[in-house]
Computed example of a mutant assay.
Amino acid sequence: MEWNKDLEKKILYKYRFTLTVRVIKVIAATLFFFWLYMLLVSLIYDGTQLGEKHAFYSKVAMDWTQPNMEEDFGGLDSIEITPFLTQKISYPIYKRVGKETVRAGEMKQAKSLLNTFSKRNIEFAEPKTEKEYNFYLPEDPRTGKSLEENEVPGIWNRLEKVDEGTVAELSFSTKTFMKPEELYEILKPYDVDVLWMPLYAGELKDFETSWGGGGDSISLFYNFGFTGGRETNNDFNSQTKLSFEPDHLNENKKLMLKQMNELLENESESYRENFLGLDHLEERYNYLMKNGFQVYGAVVTGPVKELLKLRDLEQIQGADLGKMTYWNWEE
């Protein structure tokens, strides 16, 4: 056969066609095996209930460390696993202002095979206006010396000027450590709802932690607190959540200690710290078991004129005003 340009074109065309078919077959086979791999990974992942477990403990950690933050209880969480076996969990979060909730943002977490590379982040809906909670210790745990608050100027004057048809959230510290029951008793005469209390768990006494302040004040950078507890069944599919009210305080304490103990017994330190964001959990648990629950402030919500009455309480200090919205309170 004599070589010519037509023959050359014919051979090149045939070669390109054959190569293209082979490439398509390789891509198709790769996609098929990838689909099969992800199907098996997803089936195994769904069967182990790992996603539901991580989502549950994520919410428990949020209850303890994020004052007045809650998920849409009963809503659907976004749970998925990537080809590299990173587990991604996200759910919207809300804040109680008055009797209703307002959208605060979204909790996003990624749990890698190595917990060291896990990520936890809250994407706030309005990051520029989101209030950072500061609570001030009533005394220096290392010396017992009484401390003072770092009062935000003009908080009470601002409340005086707000229209009475408004509800808001307010945070404050107390001048002494006290039991949750004692703080509830102090607030009993006022028409407000208590949402969260900062809990003293041995910071600066039994273990070192970061703190700030000015003059004779100490504010811990890491919030750790007490609120309504939650419980789940063995497969993490069904959950219950208790309200944070005086009648349920003992049950809430038991649930909190139970979950702290479960995390200590069943999960690694890297899981607790890098994925859940819970530092010094063992030291906190041991302190609470030995000394009981002591709080030094609260986050409350209610009508602004009712919140204004708290100014007359001698036991509170360091008040700060959070979100406000239109009236949604019970008459």
Score class of each variant (00 low, 15 high):
L7Y: 09
K10W: 02
Y15A: 14
V21D: 00
K25T: 13
A28E: 08
W35N: 09
L36K: 01
Y37T: 01
Y37K: 04
L40V: 09
S58Y: 06
V60N: 00
W64Q: 03
Q66I: 01
E71Y: 07
D72C: 03
I81S: 08
T82R: 13
L85Y: 15
I89L: 11
Y91K: 15
I93T: 13
R103K: 14
G105A: 12
E106Q: 15
A110L: 09
S112I: 00
L113F: 13
L114Q: 11
T116A: 11
E123N: 07
L137P: 03
P138C: 06
R142G: 03
E148D: 09
N157E: 14
E160T: 07
E169C: 11
F172G: 01
S173R: 02
K179N: 09
E181A: 11
I186Q: 00
I186T: 14
K188W: 03
D193H: 04
D193W: 00
V194P: 05
M197T: 02
Y200R: 01
A201F: 01
E203Y: 03
L204T: 08
K205T: 02
F207H: 07
E208F: 10
G213M: 04
D216H: 13
D216Y: 13
F221Q: 05
F221R: 02
T227M: 10
G228A: 14
N237L: 15
Q239F: 10
L249Y: 06
K254L: 10
E262Y: 11
N274D: 15
T301W: 13
P303I: 12
P303Y: 03
V304F: 06
L307C: 11
R311T: 08
E314L: 09
W327T: 09
N328V: 14
